[in-house]
């Protein structure tokens, strides 16, 4: 066994999949691909039917009672001691880093929140640090660019795992964009409260991603993807392009496609 393997937590038989409301409603394909990838690794994936949203939109907007109500409903979804895999850095960050403080007024709920947050993994983090996944690239040569969300990077500290996964695909070159660590300008309700600032930020981000000449952008966060792809498509429309100048997808979809599908 390699040293890295011995440092890893024991490989679980089963996980919970917390899809997030954005994936459930806007990127269901990404959620399904993430689940398929986990299943291909021999993991039983449980999708709690009663899951809704982590509560982050209300939390970051300053409506904490409302965030607490929604978060409270999620605390009961994970009775078994399995890891909770979240295909989004920002929702994982909310559950891992803000749930305990959100319930600070109630010791019983705090304990519950701490128990949940300790088991939360961002999807790429789980593949790399828990499963130690090995990927075999079956696609042709291509160039992609990876956008890592700010929450994955700074809150979860998992900015290296997405790159590590793509690095295993020997026909995939990963482009380096300017200002890689800079926010895409999404920020939840920030994007509608301050559309001019958010708009300028996403424009810079899309320009930087496109300037790499990559065929597509991949990201482990659907919030950023909504913003980035939404602006790229808007710009294409403005400039009369019929083919998307910057297509993109969740990293789960890309990884699954490159490695031969669900099997």
């Amino acid at each position: 066994m390699t040293e890295a393997a011995t440092c890893r937590p024991p490989r679980p038989q089963a996980v919970y999949f917390f899809a997030t409301c954005v994936v459930d409603q806007f990127f269901p394909g990404a959620g399904l691909d993430a689940i398929r990838l986990l299943e291909r690794e021999g993991i039983t994936v449980h999708f709690p039917e009663n899951q809704t949203c982590c509560g982050q939109p209300a939390y970051t907007s300053g409506f904490h009672d409302e965030a607490r109500r929604v978060a409270r409903a999620q605390l009961e979804l994970f009775p078994e001691p399995w890891p909770i895999v979240v295909p989004s850095g920002s929702c994982a960050g909310m559950m891992k880093h803000h749930y305990p403080a959100l319930f600070a007024a109630d010791p019983a709920l705090t304990a519950k929140a701490v128990a949940v947050s300790a088991r939360v993994y961002e999807f790429t983090e789980f593949l790399v640090t828990v499963l130690g996944i090995t990927l075999e690239d079956r696609g042709g040569p291509t160039k992609v660019v990876l956008h890592t969300s700010c929450s994955a990077r700074r809150e979860m500290g998992v900015h290296l795992t997405g790159r590590a996964l793509l690095g295993q695909l020997n026909q995939v070159s990963v482009a380096q964009q300017e200002h890689e660590a800079e926010c895409c300008g999404f920020g939840g309700t920030f994007s509608v409260k301050h559309p001019e600032i958010s708009g300028a930020m996403v424009q810079d981000k899309v320009n930087a991603l496109r300037a790499t000449g990559a065929e597509r952008v991949v990201s482990a966060d659907c919030g950023c993807l909504m913003n980035i792809l939404g602006h790229a498509a808007w710009k294409d429309r403005q400039e009369g392009r019929t083919r998307p100048s910057l297509p993109g997808e969740h990293i789960a979809t890309f990884l699954l496609k490159r490695t031969g599908g669900a099997q």
């Binding site: 409603q25 806007f26 994007s191 509608v192 559309p195 708009g199 996403v202 602006h231 429309r237």
Partner: peptide, 14 residues
């Protein structure tokens, strides 16, 4: 969709 669509295509649920 307000500020969202000033520089983005509309968000549409799947």
């Amino acid at each position: 969709q307000g500020g969202w669509t000033s520089v983005r295509t509309p968000l549409r649920p799947a």
